[in-house]
Nucleic acid binder design. Structure first.
Lengths: 221, 221
DNA sequence: TTAGACACGTGACCC
DNA sequence: TGGGTCACGTGTCTA
């Protein structure tokens, strides 16, 4: 079954049964036993080694397998070709992977460029139906907090928001305001806001959002 | 140097120098020579085999190498971590590849869904700065062509577009029109347009886009 | 018969 | 020093 003909195997075999027992002196016996145990240690080490190597191979092959499942490079060759269900070889799997990664990257950059750059520049979100208020530190710019709010549009909403921002002694460096169907969505980029005053700004904005003021309606009849 | 102790090698060696020449009979000699040549054939075959295997390994490793170059999984571990320039092992390269392929796929499907299709409900693209005109078959709906155009806003642009669509005897089943800062971005979903008339529609729209008409400006002073 | 692909056990090397 | 990774040559299977 096993075509395994290792150096250690044969040596161990030879040592195990190859000597005439009666003529072994004490010292020889000692060295023999020592050698024998050395050999056996080697055999054990070799086994361990080969098992570790097997595990490594299995790990790698497992990755190939999942790679095969997530990429459309398996089976099928032509159109109404035979149903050759056999999988491609490793090199081809890798080649196909490389091809697809490149293709995906190209696609992503095209799509990203298509919707042009950092989406907030030329993609505008409509106000959400439910009232919302969210403050978060901006990833792109150090020390900038991005405040996003959706609420009912009202006369004086803008000045209320303005006052709220002014009350925490900060500066709005950029804003994005969308007003649709009586709803408002505003995004404010606020600079110079200490961590301790984020809560203050949040509550100020909350008040501004819900300040009782008469609502704007599309028709005035 | 070579720890290579192959079956073929040792057999060949043994056969080459292991027999007392004087006692070899003619028939024995023939069979001996035959065996010797057989052994040598085997040695040559083994060499060929191992060389082929080496080529295969090189092919695979080459793919690993290119994979390493196109993926940002090489070097760098933490933040200001040591500069460990050593490359990751094969299993990790594959694992990282799988991760990134999944991530890229996710990204693409998100961007694709984002840019057209159903999420146009709550995301609107602004007109591009440069004039653009693009016609493509819609993936989601059979027989529908999606025409996207960005151009300078002008009085009469809409009626010009309307005429262009009418000229190829088709129907607009859906439209998305955004007008910002004197620029216009319109997306038209056109039904019942034969393949032969896509070019016609395209040139009609091109004319409509660039029709000399007085521009709309925000201020009228 | 020949070539290609794979798994295997092993020696070398590196922390 | 042991655990992990790699390249190697080989046996085996398949087309």
């Amino acid at each position: 079954m096993q075509p395994f003909r290792s150096f250690y195997n044969s040596e161990a075999q030879m040592i195990r049964g190859g000597f005439p027992q009666p003529f072994i002196s004490r010292t020889y016996k000692t060295s023999f036993l020592k050698k024998r145990s050395n050999a056996e240690i080697k055999v054990v080490a070799a086994k361990k080694h080969s098992e570790a190597e097997k595990r490594r191979r299995m790990r790698i092959n497992g990755q190939y397998e999942t790679l095969r499942t997530i990429l459309p490079n398996l089976i099928k060759h032509g159109e109404l070709d035979c149903v050759m269900n056999q999988q491609k070889d490793k090199a081809s799997v890798l080649a196909e992977t490389i091809k697809q990664v490149k293709e995906l990257k190209r696609k992503v950059s095209k799509l990203e460029q298509d919707s042009c750059g950092n989406s907030s520049k030329d993609v505008v979100k409509f106000p959400s139906g439910a009232d919302r208020l969210n403050l978060e530190r901006c990833n792109d710019e150090e020390g900038v907090v991005k405040a996003t709010l959706s609420c009912e549009e009202s006369l004086g909403l803008m000045s209320a928001i303005s006052r709220a921002v002014g009350s925490v002694k900060t500066k709005v460096v950029k804003a994005e305001i969308v007003s649709v169907g009586g709803r408002n969505r505003s995004v404010l980029w606020v600079k110079g806001l200490g961590k301790d005053r984020m809560g203050m700004l949040k509550s100020s904005l909350k008040i501004a959002m819900h300040k009782p003021a008469f609502k704007m309606r599309r028709s005035t009849h």
